[in-house]
Amino acid sequence: MGLGAFAAAAALVQAAGDETGRLESLALWSFRRAAKPRLGLPCAGRQPAGRKEKKMPTTDPQVMVKVCALSKTFTLHLAGPAVLPALRDVSLEVRAGECLAVVGPSGAGKSTLLRCLFGNCRLTSGEAWIRRRGRLIALSQASPRTVMALRETTLGYVSQFLRVIPRVGALDVAAEPLVSLGRSPEEARAAAGELLERLRIPRRLWTLAPSTFSGGEKQRVNIARGLVKSSPVLLLDEPTASLDAANKRTAAELINEAKARGAAVVGVFHDREVRDMVADQTLELRPIGGGRPLEELA
């Protein structure tokens, strides 16, 4: 969008030969820069930092994830448009080595919150920061390339469902995040294999594409894929939902090991046992607007 505005302004400058036109379009350009449109609900807490006054939200270097007065509204143009508020005024703070468990009924916006932190959803208002190499990155201002860099180096995400790639075997699915970081395929496969082994995926399945796997097997491949990188920030969306008791405990152990090496974890755990094993703090979300299942609608 910013690029589009720039191109429009540049075209105006080109089209207008005289000095007034040039000044006018430059004024338009600076106006656009200054007044970045922010739609949606007014945020009750702290106003998001503008581009010029880049105030850091916290001075504590241990804070890895910070969310301040975050609201997310889905606008469905095809249905009216219908406006569906999913998150309202959510604030949280997670330090290195800590795990925050997000709880609430289905449709409370738990997955939406994780998706916002992963850069999969745009923030409607408020702000979320992720620390990357010592600096807090404000997600609402981050360019696609910045978000890509964040995902590569900092964020590990375990989604509810594994997105399978045709013809790619389970071991390579789990190893891929390391390969895209630039590690050698052998090294990446060794690290992924270790995780698959611990999560009890039989070796004979490693070369098969996970599209034929059972729900629990897919979920375990997904966990291995999310944890293989040793990311400083982990976002876990019901990683243990379809696992048996033994694998649940293994997943919880893996999460605790990640915490021990200093990872900040934000997770949704429906399972009480797992939650008690890993969580240091909880955040409760309530559905907005009559509890419609927003996660499904989104």
Partner: peptide, 25 residues
């Protein structure tokens, strides 16, 4: 014209423009 641009998964999972929403749905 460009209707919308951004990260692939973000544009497909959280489309903002009416036309993108029509495409994804």
């Amino acid at each position: 014209r460009t209707v919308e641009s951004g990260l692939t998964d973000q544009v497909l999972d959280d489309p903002q423009a009416p036309y993108t929403q029509l495409l994804t749905s």
